[in-house]
């Protein structure tokens, strides 16, 4: 396998949530998402109530993948920031540590400049937490193995009943 599974623990999840909660406030944004490059939603903050967060995560990853493909075609490594402007709401998408994506949804109460500034600061913090998480996963694969080793064929069959 080219990359190992992404594993999230309680401690890092809390730290990540704290960072994106703060980003939400400081950027005056409506919603902040953290999405894995493969399209899995990692964490969300803000007015997510009636939002289809799963689809949003998947499409964001598709968007990043497609623009990443475009970047390579013109000799760039990646486009680390994408911005989509709507009539009311705007999307600011950026890549952290080449592995996860930060999505900020904001309206006229904020501005692109403010969002960019706050995202940059948050990205550094998020990157540090993610690096710590990756090191932890490398060091302690046993936690994960224990959980998965206990899964039996009967458990899997039960999923379809």
């Amino acid at each position: 396998m080219p990359t190992s599974s992404l594993v999230m623990f309680e401690e890092e999840f809390k730290q990540i949530t704290a960072v994106i909660d703060r980003l939400l406030k400081e950027a005056n944004a409506k919603v902040v998402f953290l999405v894995d490059k493969d399209g899995q939603l990692i964490a969300a903050s803000g007015e997510t109530g009636d939002m289809d967060t799963t689809s949003l995560a998947s499409l964001t990853a598709g968007n990043i993948a497609a623009t990443g493909g475009l970047a390579k075609l013109i000799g760039e490594k990646e486009f680390s920031i994408l911005f989509h402007e709507g009539e009311k709401d705007n999307l600011h998408i950026s890549i952290v540590g080449q592995r996860v994506i930060v999505v900020v949804i904001f309206d006229q109460r904020s501005s692109l400049g403010l969002v960019r500034l706050r995202v940059k600061k948050a990205n550094d913090e998020l990157n540090a937490i993610l690096q710590k998480l990756l090191r932890r996963v490398e060091k302690k694969p046993s936690v994960q193995e224990n959980l998965l080793a206990e899964i039996t064929d009967t458990d899997i069959d039960k999923l379809f009943h």
Binding site: T3, S5, L6, V7, F9, E10, F13, D36, D38, G39
Partner: peptide
């Protein structure tokens, strides 16, 4: 690449 979240107790896989 699967995503195992011990915090929200979820296993996510891509097919």
């Amino acid at each position: 690449m699967s995503f195992i979240n011990y915090s929200s107790r979820e296993i996510n896989c891509k097919i």
